[in-house]
Amino acid sequence: MSSLLPCCFPVCQSEPLLEVDDLHAEVEGNAILRGVSLRIHAGEIHAIMGRNGSGKSTLAKVVAGHPAYTVTAGTVRYRGDDLLALEPEDRARAGLFLGFQHPVEIPGVSNLEFLRVSSNARRRYKGEEELDTFAFEDHVRDTLPIVQMDPAFLERSVNEGFSGGEKKRNEILQMALLDPLVAVLDETDSGLDIDALRIVAGGVQQLARPDNATLLITHYQRLLDVITPDFVHVMVNGRILRTGDKGLALELEERGYDWVDQEDADSLAEVGAR
């Protein structure tokens, strides 16, 4: 079942965790997002699909506060508050998590220390006790099985020399430790072999709860074979053109994106004719 609504407004009585309304954004003067609207409630898993360059990753970075992007119109509200007014670190502390498509390597910064500092930032925001080095190491070792990660990776520099799969596991490990309310996972499945995909996707599934939400950004149906989304959105030219359930993802897998483009063109032509 899919609709031709240009945006997704699922029928839900509760306040959305994340509400994007008519969001426009640009980078270096080039408009990328041209009116994205999206509501995500607690307990939901959303997936955004689309071609390369359709604006999926830009949406993720704008929501997370990447300084290279400028919001030119629209709003993003997180639990009712203006998210765009917050610095990236404040968004993260408040419970917004971005899983990077290309996790950054940071030589010389111990992965364990990085995880501890970031985790404590979130814990402090939540009013929880910060963990010292020893308590945190116990905590992180208890968390490692979620992504089946070798403890040796804790001793290395952040993502340095990690394979693509190891980097993505490290992202989900961070997600587990930060315990976000909204996780935006930008092409978490890219560069993963089948086994790694299952592990990473399994980790995401384990972390999904009734009080949090996940936004998956992906090119492919294969991630959605493991994680069943409640809503699937198709992004074209910086807008969400179509929203449906998992069946829409299957349709895209079978038919590609051309038919969505065509419907978009027809829709625009119809508007023009009127």
């Binding site: 990236p88 670190e89 968004r91 993260a92 990085f114 979130r122």
Partner: peptide, 18 residues
């Protein structure tokens, strides 16, 4: 690198120090 650290709740100043 700075944004990556900021996106994990670490302030820009602290990220620079890290």
């Amino acid at each position: 690198e700075l944004f990556y650290l900021q996106s994990r709740g670490i302030s820009r100043h602290q990220a620079a120090r890290l």
